[in-house]
Amino acid sequence: MNNSIIQIQNLKFNWDKSKVPFIIIPELEVLKSEHLLIKGDSGSGKTTFLNLISGVLPLSSGEIKILGENLVDVSSSKRDAIRANHMGVIFQMFNLIPYLSVIENVLIPIHFSEVKKNKIRAKGIGPKEEAIRLLTELGLQQKEIHEKKVTELSVGQQQRVAAARALIGSPEIILADEPTSALDENNSMRFLDLLLEECKKNNSTLLYVSHDSRIHQKFQQSISIHDFTEDMPIAEKTKKEAVVCS
């Protein structure tokens, strides 16, 4: 139980209170350092699920515990703080601020979290050195790239910058929302390998949302978002949860 990073109990979420729930999760537990693939087609609710985990969307009912803290019981500002201090997020694309340099983009989370800043200081280095270290590990070692505007980078390079931004400050949870959808197959696999490796080094839990079935074998665990959405009978959902929590 101490190893548990995310715990979900009887989660229900619907966009409109009068309608049937869009997502139902009777039980789900994600452990520390676990790499979980959440499969699902476009529009199936994967992103909504990540927004629930990150505390951006409020639950309709049930509970989500992040590092033991129940998101239902805390204020929205506390949920923002949990996200800032313990999570890193990678989106599909367009996920960098265009008028900031590569380094500035990587350092954004540091400005919102003292916890992340302190974790870097504990390593005996400054945030900028940590950003450079992460970029280098993700294959962006050339110094001139670091000061470039992100719009001057290729899509593949941009996604690595986004990964560095998610990883900076060693957050316990990395949420990745189809980060490879804009990349070709080679680049996708390379990016995914780098991300998994970095998560392993940091002992970060990775929740990776994708519709790409080819990456299935790279993950220790996988669930399908269809298991949790409204068109699935409850009995079926409960069966699937055993697979997830194994």
Partner: peptide, 14 residues
């Protein structure tokens, strides 16, 4: 809006 979504993801409150 995208810029704001990024800021939300790193913990900026609405």
């Amino acid at each position: 809006r995208r810029e704001m979504a990024i800021l939300r993801s790193v913990g900026a409150s609405p």
